[in-house]
Design a protein around this nucleic acid. Structure first.
Length: 861
RNA sequence: GCCCGGGUGGCGGAAUGGUAGACGCAGCGGACUUAAAAUCCGCUGGCCGAAAGGCCGUGCCGGUUCAAGUCCGGCCCUGGGCACCA
């Protein structure tokens, strides 16, 4: 074996060996339990960043460990290749998005290979390949046939200068990022997927996802947002007939306290009034400004205006003013609310601002209608000022009022979800075309299955003024499949979340060109372990669950849920710097190009290295392409090797924890691997002997060292089980520290067993060095085929144990007792300690708590 | 604004109600070396003390417990998500 640890040599050799063996090419095998280990596919942004290294190392550690434990493991990889950054790069560099994307994929694939991940590359896919997105289109048409995909209008961000739709990311402080123009909301026809049809199942099935983090399930449940309440009709005759304003409320019990009705700015009634009322029209116009995100809407100043019409209270017939208010959301409930200012915080603030009446109907002492207190909305209190409903509680009051409303045909109990249907239409080029054709004679016609895929031209370059497909005659002009007349193709493409909602299924059947998935999907599904960033906790994971259920209902799949176990990786954060260009445009500056001045740990000033000009600090945030704060692992891999990089990433923090980027510590990982190598070189003559050894005849030192090793192994296995890999690494370090550096022949069994354990523990994390030493030291040919190490209980036994003695909970001494000592003997030994006596002397012992194997606590008065 | 996390030495972190700071990084001291690098050994939360030992200490305030970083209530700061970034 070589004297020096040189990762460049051993890493490429190990990778070549695995490739030649097709070691990670998975096939369906009935003789072994299957294990599908999946990491979220990367967006091919150009280069890997540390977040990718973290994500894929976690997946690889699990993959390799499960393989050594005897599972038939599949770990595939692909590319989430459609999306906005490719269009931006295209505009900047005047290259087609396809070229940019495929070049990025080629580069990043080599980076992944250099990191030695145990990936089955034969199943690789990219979502921008026609062979992949053909099935998006095929399945979209099946959903359209079922009514799951349907058309309605939706709101988008509109840049009035560029005359184009903007993504939320392109709206900064309510203005377009390129033009600086104030963004408007605009309605457009779009396709939606009817995810709300599955709302109940998506919510209830969370209970069965035992392998998911509680926090993710809570986030999904809150997102789905099931509310039990009532639909109530407030009759309104202003525009003739017997129409009514419908509202949804979770507090029907407080109906007698309703003093006005408020509708959203987009509500049909508001629009009708606006037709003849320029003040209202102007207000609605104002509400159209600004972004469409919930955050933008929720943080804006609450404003409203009377519509000048009235609605009838459904029980009392009292006339209530109708207002338009920007805090009412059109896409939640009915787009209208009954306002009960006395018992709803937002209504309270609104009523106080516009001097609307406030009527208390729930018992609260010292009610004050100018200062809000949370008890006003407490559901535990009883109704007052509510006529026949006085004295009822929340549930009884709701039931009684709902029953009376139902009898009058003016309402009923109802469940409402916060979840909205999923709008998938995008007015953008670099995405999967929606397979529809618009014919003047036949209307909207589906592209026939045999004409799929509708292929996206790969040579167009967007220019920022909208979707280039609209100017591409070759794509646009088509014959109608029904009548054969001239027709136009749909130019909207699909949300990229569509692509990522089922890619994990395509891996199982990636070579099948005649079906979306086949029976192999039922062999591999569900995914046994899914790993990806916590930022995907809601949207991607919810859409994938929905998509899986739809495929099940269309008999394409047996699985109900896609992901059995979920590990949400904490994000890798880095500092963000930027400066404002003219026209309000923001230019981000990579942290590596910034010199920073600190004062008491806080950044006080920053300058760009390349030109010395000041830059602004925008805090710390996730590594992202758009903010240019990603760190490329390439330099680290070249200098220290893949193993040291992987080890460092795993050692830096537990997988689920957020990690602020810093490269201090890579030296430590590198040093550790050098020490492992040196230990192997120094002791190689004693290794590989697998003869049984009688440890009871070994010296005390050898047995003590072996106990430390097996204790560390036990801890490491528990930590592998709970996926806390940073402490697995520290256990490996402890094992190396416990082994003699230059062993004597008497220690041969100890170093041989210890080294064999150490290499197998490290094999999932640092597979190259583990493979090289395993074969050099004669333990076997391939460590990936070695059995997983388990600790020996006999090695953990000890004659004497040390206990901690506390007096009133404070540490006062330590005593050694035989491990077989009983309670009395332990107590006596504890009381005998000189320092303990100092603190007990002259005081009364109230009780003595003995925690076996741990401590004694003497409680004195 | 709403929903979900996090806050422990100079730094990354460990501690599944039971010894706070494992394992590392950085730093300091020493060995080896003509020298440097590399390597090896030792020290390293703060304050008091010659030492033994003591007092303080896990974002802040309060509570439960023999015992709280860990459980409960309130607050502050910070990260993620909020439906067109992926």
């Amino acid at each position: 074996m070589k004297d020096q640890y040189r990762p460049q040599d051993i890493e490429s050799a190990a990778q070549a060996r695995w490739t030649k063996q097709r070691a990670f090419a998975a096939s369906e095998d009935a003789n072994k339990p299957k294990y599908y280990c999946l990491s979220m596919l990367p967006y091919p942004s150009g280069k890997l960043h540390m977040g990718h290294v973290r994500n894929y190392t976690i997946g690889d550690v699990i993959t390799r460990q499960m393989r050594m434990r005897g599972f038939n493991v599949l770990q595939p990889m692909g590319w989430d290749a459609f999306g906005l950054p490719a269009e931006n790069a295209a505009m900047q560099n005047n290259v087609p998005p396809a070229k940019w994307t495929y070049e990025n994929i080629a580069y990043m694939r080599e980076q992944l290979k250099a990191l030695g991940f145990a990936i089955d590359w034969e199943r690789e896919l990219a979502t921008c390949q026609p062979d992949y997105y053909k099935w998006n289109q095929w399945f979209f048409l099946r959903m359209r046939e079922q009514g799951i995909a349907y058309k309605k209008t939706g709101v988008v961000n509109w840049d009035p200068v560029d005359q184009t739709v903007l993504a939320n990311e392109q709206v900064i402080d309510g203005r377009g990022w390129r033009t600086g123009a104030e963004v408007e909301k605009r309605e457009m026809p779009m396709y939606y997927l009817n995810i709300t049809r599955y709302a109940d199942e998506l919510l209830n099935a969370l209970d069965g996802l035992d392998g998911w983090p509680e926090r993710v399930k809570t986030m999904q449940a809150n997102w789905i947002g099931k509310s039990e309440g009532a639909e109530i009709h407030f009759p309104c005759h202003s525009f003739g007939g017997d129409s009514a304003i419908k509202v949804f409320t979770t507090r029907a019990d407080t109906l007698m306290g309703a003093t006005y009705v408020a509708v959203a700015a987009e509500h049909p009634l508001a629009l009708k009034v606006a037709a003849n009322n320029s003040g209202v029209a102007k207000f609605i116009e104002e509400c159209r400004k600004g972004g469409t995100t919930e955050a933008a809407i929720a943080t804006q100043e609450k404003r409203g205006m009377p519509l000048g019409i009235e609605a009838e209270h459904p029980l009392t017939g009292e006339r209530l003013p109708v207002w338009v208010a920007n805090y009412v959301l059109m896409n939640y409930g009915e787009g209208a609310v009954m306002a009960v200012p006395a018992h709803d915080e937002r209504d309270f603030a609104f009523a106080n601002k516009y001097e609307l009446p406030i009527k208390q109907v729930v018992a609260c002492e010292n009610y004050n209608d100018t200062e809000w207190r949370d008890e006003y909305s407490d559901k535990q209190r009883l109704l007052v000022n509510s006529g026949k409903y006085d004295g009822l509680g929340f549930e009884a009051g709701t039931d009684a009022i709902a029953a009376d409303l139902e009898a009058k045909g003016l309402g009923k109990k109802r469940v409402n979800f916060r979840l909205r249907d999923w709008g998938i239409s995008r007015q953008r080029f670099w995405g999967c075309p929606i397979p529809l054709i618009h014919c003047e004679a036949c209307g909207e016609v589906a592209v026939p299955d045999e004409q799929l895929p509708v292929t996206l031209p790969e040579d167009l370059v967007p220019d920022g003024s909208g979707n280039p497909l609209n100017k591409c005659a070759e794509f646009l002009n088509v014959k109608c499949p029904q009548c054969g007349g001239d027709a136009k193709r749909e130019t909207d493409t699909m949300d990229t979340f569509v692509d990522s909602s089922w890619y994990f299924l395509r891996y199982t059947s990636s070579d099948n060109h005649s079906a979306m998935v086949d029976a192999r999907a039922d062999y591999w599904m569900p995914v046994d372990q899914y790993i990806g960033g916590i930022e995907h906790a809601i949207l991607h994971l919810l859409y994938s669950r929905f998509w899986t259920k739809v495929m099940r209902d269309l008999d394409l799949l047996q699985a109900d849920e896609p992901f059995r176990n979920l590990l949400t990786q904490g994000m890798v954060l880095n500092h963000i710097f930027f400066r404002k260009e003219s026209a309000g445009r923001i230019e981000y500056v990579p942290p590596g190009d910034v010199d920073v001045e600190y004062d008491k740990g806080e950044i006080v000033s920053a300058k760009r290295k390349s030109d010395g000009a000041p830059v602004e600090y925008d805090g710390i945030g996730t590594m992202s392409k758009s903010k240019l704060n990603g760190v490329d692992p390439q330099g680290m891999v070249e200098q220290y090797g893949a193993d040291a990089t992987r080890l460092f990433m795993m050692f830096a923090a537990p997988p689920e924890q957020t990690l602020e980027w810093s490269d201090t510590g890579i030296e430590g990982a590198w040093r550790f691997l050098k020490k492992v190598w040196q230990f192997a070189v120094d002791n190689c003559a004693l290794m590989g002997d697998a003869k049984p050894f009688d440890w009871s005849k070994a010296s005390d030192d050898v047995r003590a060292a072996r106990r430390d090793i097996h204790e560390a192994l036990k801890q490491a296995n528990a930590d592998y089980e709970r996926k806390q890999f940073n402490t697995v690494v520290s256990a490996a370090m402890k094992i190396l520290n416990a082994l003699p550096k230059q062993a004597t022949p008497d220690e041969a069994a100890l170093v041989s067993e210890g080294c064999s354990i150490l290499l197998r523990l490290l094999a999932p994390i640092t597979p190259h060095i583990a493979q090289q030493l395993w074969s050099d030291l004669g333990f076997g040919d391939d460590i990936i085929d070695a059995a997983w190490p388990e600790h020996d209980d006999a090695a953990l036994k000890s004659n004497v144990i040390e206990l901690v003695v506390q007096v009133n909970g404070k540490l006062r001494g330590r005593v050694s007792v035989p491990s077989a000592a009983d309670r009395e003997a332990i107590e006596a030994a504890a009381m005998n300690d000189a320092n303990v006596q100092r603190f007990v002397e002259g005081r009364t012992v109230r009780k003595v708590i003995v925690v076996p194997g741990k401590l004694v606590n003497v409680v004195v008065a």
